[in-house]
């Protein structure tokens, strides 16, 4: 009985935390979707969603209801089990990675020592949702899209891996909390009169890697201008052509949660996580969660702007960018960073 309770209580706590994170994350995703459409509309001088609720704020929930209430259509020639499994894999994996993301100091469901590697492993699994969906649909468009996307995601994962290694070299730990805390001090900003400020964060010393990571994150999550898997002008809607109703919703949800995850990862690795931009008392008084989500929103805003203003890449140029530009650049930066840290000791906080 004693042992049962010693397991039961932590299990209940973890379940409660997960539920809280899940609800918060889904609400945030709903408004991120709304923000995406509003920003896209504003760039094109349209109004965007403005009918459901005040200023269209309830649009995402109306969409959710619409998707759930529609009839699910499963093609008769599809491989049914895999067809249903694919969107589940995509959504569950995207949500699972959030278990290790610290949104404030100590506010992670699992504070793993190898947190960043866990996130990387999960995001490398996300490609399966797309491949399985594309294959199981038994449709040429979906299949072509899934082949494209598999190659694309595997290619950009390589450069993301190297970018993460450069950051890890500067931090000396794979724990996400340590990565954020190491950005608190360091680069001699005391002389500028701005101790523990935004100038200490990794985006400045590792600026090229910051840009490479941002672009690779867009490619990894299949966002425009790298949305070749679902290029609607060539492939109708990519791997999701045959999906409808709740299954489509799960794909959609998985995609947006993965985008949010990449924004959060950019925030943690380069923008100082929950740290306030300047070390003054009234900014320190604001809870860290606020800063974290503000930075996530900022990164997402730039992703939305990129989507709105940059035309879609051609597939061979996408591959060229990944393998011939980003890979050598990030490899060189790993080398250079290791060299600088080894021989000058600079950067080790």
């Amino acid at each position: 009985m004693e042992t049962l309770f010693s397991y039961l209580w932590p299990a209940i706590v973890i379940f409660g935390q997960s539920l809280l994170l899940l609800v918060g994350l889904l609400l945030f995703t709903a408004y991120i979707l709304y923000a995406d459409r509003k920003i896209f509309a504003a760039v094109q001088m349209r109004r965007g969603p403005n009918v459901v609720g005040p200023w269209g704020l309830l649009q995402s929930f109306a969409d959710l209801l619409k998707f759930v209430l529609k009839e699910p259509i499963i093609p008769s020639s599809s491989s049914k089990a895999v067809f249903i499994l694919a969107p589940l894999v995509s959504a569950v994996l995207a949500l699972a990675a959030w278990a290790v993301i610290p949104i404030n100091e100590g506010w992670a469901i699992a504070n793993l020592n190898l947190g960043i590697l866990f996130v990387f492993a999960i995001s490398s699994l996300e490609v399966y949702g797309i491949i399985m969906g594309g294959w199981a649909s038994n449709s040429k468009y979906a299949f072509l899209a899934s082949l494209r996307s598999a190659a694309q995601m595997v290619s950009y994962e390589v450069s993301i891996g190297f970018v993460i290694i450069t950051v890890l070299l500067c931090v000396g730990s794979l724990n996400l909390t340590d990565i954020v805390l190491s950005q608190q001090h360091g680069l001699g900003t005391e002389q500028l009169g701005l101790p523990s400020s935004f100038l200490d964060w990794h985006w400045l010393p590792l600026f090229p890697m910051f840009i490479v990571f941002f672009i690779s994150a867009i490619a990894e999550t299949n966002r425009p201008p790298f949305d070749l898997p679902e290029a609607e002008s060539e492939l109708v809607a990519g791997h999701m052509v045959e999906y409808s109703s709740t299954l489509f919703l799960l794909f959609f949800l998985g995609e947006f949660v993965a985008i949010l995850l990449m924004c959060a990862l950019t925030t943690l690795l380069f923008l100082g996580g929950w740290l306030p931009p300047v070390d003054v008392w009234f900014l320190n008084w604001v809870p860290g969660v606020f800063w974290f989500f503000l930075k996530v929103l900022l990164v997402f805003f730039f992703m939305a702007m990129v989507r709105a203003v940059v035309p879609r890449y051609r597939y061979d140029q996408l591959m060229r960018l990944g393998w011939k530009v980003f890979l050598p650049l990030s490899l060189f930066m790993v080398f250079a960073t290791a060299f600088v840290i080894q021989y000058t000791g600079w950067g080790l906080g």
Partner: peptide, 18 residues
Amino acid sequence: GLLLIVVYVGAVAVLFLF
């Protein structure tokens, strides 16, 4: 364990499946 997922599942098996 995590490396097994990243390397085998995330890269090798994807190409295999491909």
